[in-house]
């Protein structure tokens, strides 16, 4: 019996572990609201996109996402910076006291792309947000990323997200996924 498995990882183990560490680091920065360091991980042409989910019958595919559809995030760097500038004013009362938040990243898969120096990373992020007085909110998002080598670091160039919940379960989304 051969010891080799009839399944091949999509990238070598070094690359896979590097992406795992990268996504964990990003999750930690978001948990810590370290937006300065998080912004430094984003490419200048970042597109950060999360359409509004809806429920249609399987045969109603034409109802699926089309141009001019609503979104939760459709941000380029300028809009992301604006959100962060809003937090930085310290005038966002709902974030004071600070809400505890944990981004748990799972289901990581990494694929090479047709472009040199770019990788496609899939992951699922589960956000647990502990608000005032025992209120807890849990949200699950699947992410489809493009990461690109720029200089001596990897930068997030694109993040397409699917939000699991057709009704957003929290009264604000004052954070990033």
């Amino acid at each position: 019996m051969s010891n080799s498995l009839p399944f091949k990882n999509t990238v070598d183990i070094e690359t896979y572990l590097a992406f795992q560490a990268l996504l964990y680091k990003e999750a930690r920065l978001l948990d810590q609201e370290d937006y300065e360091q998080w912004l430094a991980m984003l490419a200048d042409d970042i597109h950060y996109y999360m359409p509004v989910p809806a429920r249609y019958l399987r045969e109603e595919k034409k109802q699926a996402i089309k141009p001019l559809d609503a979104h939760i995030f459709n941000d380029y760097k300028k809009q992301i910076e604006l959100r962060i500038a809003r937090f930085a004013t310290n005038l966002v009362w709902s974030e004071n006291p600070q809400n505890a938040i944990n981004h748990t990243v799972t289901n990581i898969e990494v694929f090479p792309t047709d472009v040199d120096g770019e990788w496609n990373a899939l992951s699922v992020v589960t956000v647990l947000r502990s608000r005032l007085d025992g209120v807890e909110k849990r949200m699950v998002v699947s992410r489809d990323d493009i990461w690109r080598i720029e200089g001596d670091s990897l930068k997030l160039a694109k993040r397409n997200m699917l939000f699991n919940h057709t009704v957003v379960p929290d009264s604000n989304l004052n954070f990033f996924f």
Binding site: V52, L68, F73, W93, V168
Partner: peptide, 24 residues
């Protein structure tokens, strides 16, 4: 598209205005 983007960014689920009101 400009209007839709602005509606979502100001008063959508992650809208920067709307996200101030819910807690109050």
């Amino acid at each position: 598209q400009t209007v839709l983007d602005n509606v979502c960014r100001t008063f959508g689920a992650a809208g920067m205005f709307d996200n101030d009101d819910g807690e109050n």
